[in-house]
Design a protein around this nucleic acid. Sequence first.
RNA 1: GCCUCGAUAGCUCAGUCGGUAGAGCAAGGGACUGAAAAUCCCUGUGUCAGUGGUUCGAUUCCACUUCGAGGCA
Length: 310
Amino acid sequence: MQKNKPKVIVICGPTASGKTKLSIELAKQIQGEIVSCDSMQIYQEMNIGTAKPTKEEMQGIPHYLLDFVSPSKRYSVADFKKDATLAIENILQYNKVPILVGGTGLYIESLVKNIEYPEIELDSNYRKQLEEQIQEKGLEVLYEKAKEIDPKAMETISKNDKKRIMRVLELYRQTGKTKTELEKLSRQNPPPYDYHVFAITMDREKLYNRINQRVDNMIEQGLIQEVENLLKKYNTFPTAMQGLGYKEVVSYLQGNITKEEMIEKLKMETRRYAKRQLTWFRKDKNIKWLNALAPIQENIQCIVEDYSGE
RNA sequence: GCCUCGAUAGCUCAGUCGGUAGAGCAAGGGACUGAAAAUCCCUGUGUCAGUGGUUCGAUUCCACUUCGAGGCA
């Protein structure tokens, strides 16, 4: 019964590991089209800092979920799940192979594990209320409250993890169900596609060198100007300014740190991000690892063999 | 050339009245279900510059050597 499901290829891996290049080359060879799984490349006018592939790099391969959200808009995994599913369906209609590419583990997981999100809107008023309560009474009070509502979920959530504590409370308030219950409901149905998941990486030292190099290139290409333009054009950034490279440059533009400090900080934060990504992908024991330093054709062959098999 | 101070973790440094050492940062590992490039948790990695002396025992005291900083000529 797996046989009837359309096949979908996934290429993930840490930042700067060569996902873009591999995916485009693969797409050219197997009639593929690409769906980006990247929480920052979705934003318009954020090109240099997100290392968004350029038109030339794409070589005519269609790319979905790139460059289509205003930096002043909010976007979430649930939005992504919906948009990505539409994109995959679209590609399959043309009898092309969907290739999902990106470094946002949460986004990829939403598809590969087919996590279903109930239709709820963000209640920003309630979130504001919670923030105020934290200011007044401290986070601990909310932590205890969350523990009463959903003791199971709180086993893995730290007393200091403000975001997740708030989320437990938000979910209960809006749905009347606990996070634990909702998560169970979200995993009812098996994925509608036959996913073949690959991760690409290289040894840590070389990866870090590439990251450092890439940051230098971004600065040369005008990252600072890009951030200045954004700040001029928009005044609220619900999520876009969380992106690496953006918050650091803002801090520099505000005069909090020197340019050199900013560059070093950005390199460091990006290295840490790559580490976190690796932790995420290592968790999936079924993932097939590719060596980024191997010839590209070799990696493509690995993918094609796996894809054609079974 | 002489004098003084310093040499301890990847970096900056603390410390051991002689019983082989610990902070911050960096780093490593982990978690992750609507902010995820976010958020959070855990972990101390060491020829205590080298050689010799004193001592049951030296990273600690002494001598010399090397290197570094400052001062005097």
